[in-house]
């Protein structure tokens, strides 16, 4: 079996598990929707204000919910002693990292795909016009966030106060991706010029490349017993 195939199998295991339990995608979707609802109480019904902050609110809802899913990702493996099983696979540890990352990325992207039309209705967004430009932003942004999140999630299961530990580590480090997704989405939603989006995309691509490489390199040290 090739390396890629093993990565795929580890990711597929998580997807299958979720197809049976429906824990991740369902909770992600409902939690994001609830965050949105609560944000609306804070912001009030002012249309213009909502249009200005919609990009930020949408992404914060996605990412905060995503963080919960990321936190559960390795907790499940530990609770059921599955991590030992994963470690027995005769493959480089980075395959486990990439596999888990693939699963998490998929959950977050599916949840985003389900929620985006809903949010478009809530915020009166013209989704069709924005969609082709929104997809690369969403993919690159979610990849960067999930990439570091998977890494820290694997760490957090061995740390006391693990529920707080993941956001504490992830949020400050993920600031470039959070900023980039929110700002570029905001430009796209007001149909701004592509030249304003492109630098953010480059920044996210660079971020993703750097931290996925770091993740692959250091994941071995995290799983070490």
């Amino acid at each position: 079996m090739s390396f890629l195939r093993r990565v795929y199998i580890i990711a597929w295991k998580d997807v299958l598990l979720d197809l049976h339990t429906r824990e991740n995608v369902t909770t992600l979707v409902f939690f994001s929707a609830l965050i949105l609802l609560v944000f609306n109480f804070a912001l009030g019904p002012d249309r213009e204000l909502l249009a200005q902050v919609s990009a930020g609110v949408i992404w914060l809802a996605f990412l905060l919910a995503g963080m919960l899913a990321l936190g559960r990702s390795f907790l499940l493996e530990r609770e059921n002693e599955c991590l030992e099983g994963l470690l027995l696979i005769p493959v480089d540890r980075s395959a486990i990292y990439l596999g888990k990352l693939g699963g998490n990325l998929l959950f977050m992207l599916v949840a985003e795909a389900i929620l985006l039309p809903l949010f478009a209705v809530f915020f009166n967004l013209d989704l069709w016009a924005a969609l082709p430009r929104l997809i690369p932003v969403a993919v690159l942004g979610t990849l960067g966030f999930a990439g570091l999140g998977t890494l820290f999630s694997a760490m957090a299961v061995h740390v006391r106060a693990r529920e707080v530990m993941l956001p504490l580590l992830l949020l400050p480090v993920a600031v470039p991706v959070i900023l980039a997704t929110i700002r570029s989405t905001e430009v796209i939603l007001r149909a701004g010029p592509w030249a304003e989006v492109a630098p953010w995309l480059q920044l996210m691509a660079g971020f993703d490349v750097i931290f996925l490489t770091v993740g692959v390199l250091v994941f071995d040290f995290i799983l070490e017993q």
Binding site: V173, P176, A180, L203, F207, F211
Partner: peptide, 22 residues
């Protein structure tokens, strides 16, 4: 773990700075 957080943090600082400047 701390070493990993330190490495990621130190690599991240220039990127954070760039993003915030933009």
């Amino acid at each position: 773990y701390a070493a990993i957080v330190g490495i990621i943090g130190a690599l991240d600082i220039p990127i954070i700075h760039m993003s915030v400047v933009w």
